[in-house]
Design a protein around this nucleic acid. Structure first.
Lengths: 322, 322
DNA sequence: GCATATTTGTGCGTATGTATT
DNA sequence: TAATACATACGCACAAATATG
């Protein structure tokens, strides 16, 4: 919508016909392994977690080869262009006939590639006039969805996911306090204020609270931790969205409207103790109290009111499949 | 191969023809959102990481609806059966004509679903006699591959991934030390001994070292952290496999054969200081020295020799696409 | 409301690869 | 070793649904 959609000349430099391709002019490159990484190990045991031999993957010299299907080759080429930024968010792909001739494949093959990329949320294809495939930036949510599948298959609980966050975030708070950057403090204050400005609807409150936790990790500057934390948060909001949404929100604002308590009567729709804990963390970081920040944030995350309500939050992360 | 492959009656309880399906008897369920989660936010900015507004996703009341394609519905049904364990590792799916009649879809549609599941490494399709689709358990490697795509798109470096591990693992060591379980200590000793028994080939050494780090996290019992750590490890071994493999291994065994130094001359092919650091961690955990274990493990992970060699390990995680 | 462009789903045919005989 | 049967891979062409203008 925003951009005029550079839909022309997709595989621009590589469209020379490369004569002896299997079904067309898809650059075959027989030594590459394309997209879907096969899993050599994991014969069936559900990951020994207590004391077993822990499955030391001995990584043999040559892995299992799998013939790359043509559709996967097409999907890989498009995926690469998206990941490398040659195709950016909102760009429109050429219509199917154009792509068919450019890749030298038939319609079913191209459609298979489309389904793969659509399942990865890298494109979304709508039909009708001015429809077609539009590009989307890769998001941690898809990685989170698949990680959630793995966790669901292993029988992990929602409390398990939450505990992982409580392990990751405190060291980030320590890092921020050690650095002591005024910019970090200002950014955290801004996020906290933004949480005050949202209304009283439960979803917005939960989102604001999550945003603060995310900010603690993202301000660290470590992109991997940011992505991982985003995945964990997405898992929580994904499993708790269908049913437990209202209960979580009810837990967030413990004392619903304590406006007569004295200080700042109106502008704190966020949970009382929650907002206080967030503000305290900012103070500790500003003060440079690394140990205190880490310990405080760890306690805040381990607090019983912070986790999902209704028992010790042991609902299996099974909601991802309905 | 190992199992007789229960290939009959795949969608057993749900094969009643459900009259008014769009193209067949796929259970439509119009309210469900199937597989590919669209991303509402992220208009194009590469994740403000320093001080920006940090994009507080305000989660509106109704998300964007997307018509579920028939192939995605088929893929979702098969995926659900795999994740829930009704189809387990190595099981064979019925041949295409059977699935076509059971799902009431045509072959291209079924093949699109196959490509999606194959890209997710949940099945692997081989052709030829006794070929067909075989089921695989979901592995963190696929989640790692997609998370790697996200990180590569954001320009994350390999050092960034390593730093994430150095944030996650020390708290796990602390947890193990606080718990002080003899089983944990025994398991860690077993993994360490297994690392001694592998040969001298660089790949095996790197795998053994990675296995110890994984054990530290997995013994915690937290499945989310285990999956996340497995993803990070898979990312490093994925990016460093093509070129930097030998250099990493060369870094692992600093003093190649110091067998004349006195203690245990023969059975420590693992790097000298590396093995010592691992053994020291076990001792600290056995002693119950939580603070010491955390600090030691953090130092070990931050050691310059532990990261990838050749500068401060800032190679972009770009190798995932060739 | 109608025309148009676009994807969607389907059927059938041929080619290719794999395991069995 | 060679022939054969089986199962998927890929292609072409047609009908239907859908969103835009």
């Amino acid at each position: 919508m925003a951009r005029p959609a550079a839909s022309a000349a997709l595989p621009s430099g590589t469209s020379q016909p490369s004569p002896a391709a299997p079904g067309g002019q898809v650059a075959t490159e027989p030594g590459r392994r394309a997209a879907g990484g096969r899993v050599p190990g994991l014969p069936g045991s559900p990951a020994p977690l207590t004391a077993g031999p822990l499955a030391v993957t001995v990584s043999p010299v040559g892995r299992q080869v799998r013939v790359p299907k043509t559709a996967e080759l097409v999907a890989s080429q498009l995926r690469r262009r998206i990941i490398r930024g040659e195709l950016s968010e909102g760009d429109a792909l050429p219509p199917e006939p154009t792509l068919m001739t450019q890749f030298g494949v038939s319609r079913p093959t191209l459609r298979e590639a489309f389904r793969v990329l659509e399942a990865e949320a890298l494109i979304s294809v709508r039909r009708g006039a001015h429809g077609g495939a539009r590009v989307h930036a890769p998001s941690p949510n898809v990685a989170a969805r698949y990680a959630g599948l793995v966790l669901e298959h292993r029988g992990a609980t929602l409390g398990d996911v939450h505990q992982a966050s409580s392990v990751i975030e405190p060291p980030c708070a320590v890092l921020l306090a050690e650095r002591g950057s005024p910019d970090d403090v200002a950014a955290l204050r801004a996020v906290l204020a933004e949480g005050d400005s949202v209304g009283e609807e439960p979803a917005a409150l939960a989102a604001a609270q999550a945003a603060f936790h995310r900010a603690v990790v993202e301000l660290t500057g470590n992109k991997s931790l940011s992505v991982l934390t985003g995945m964990l948060q997405h898992l929580v909001e994904l499993t708790s969205a269908p049913q437990g949404h209202a209960s979580i929100a009810a837990n967030i604002r413990e004392a619903p409207a304590r406006s007569s308590a004295g200080d700042e009567p109106q502008r704190r729709p966020l949970g009382r103790t929650t907002r206080l804990a967030h503000a305290t963390l900012i103070d500790l970081i500003e003060r440079g109290d690394a140990a205190g920040a880490g310990e405080h944030w760890g306690r805040h995350l381990a607090a019983p009111g912070h986790a999902v309500p209704g028992g010790p939050a042991d609902g299996c992360v099974l909601d991802l499949l309905g």
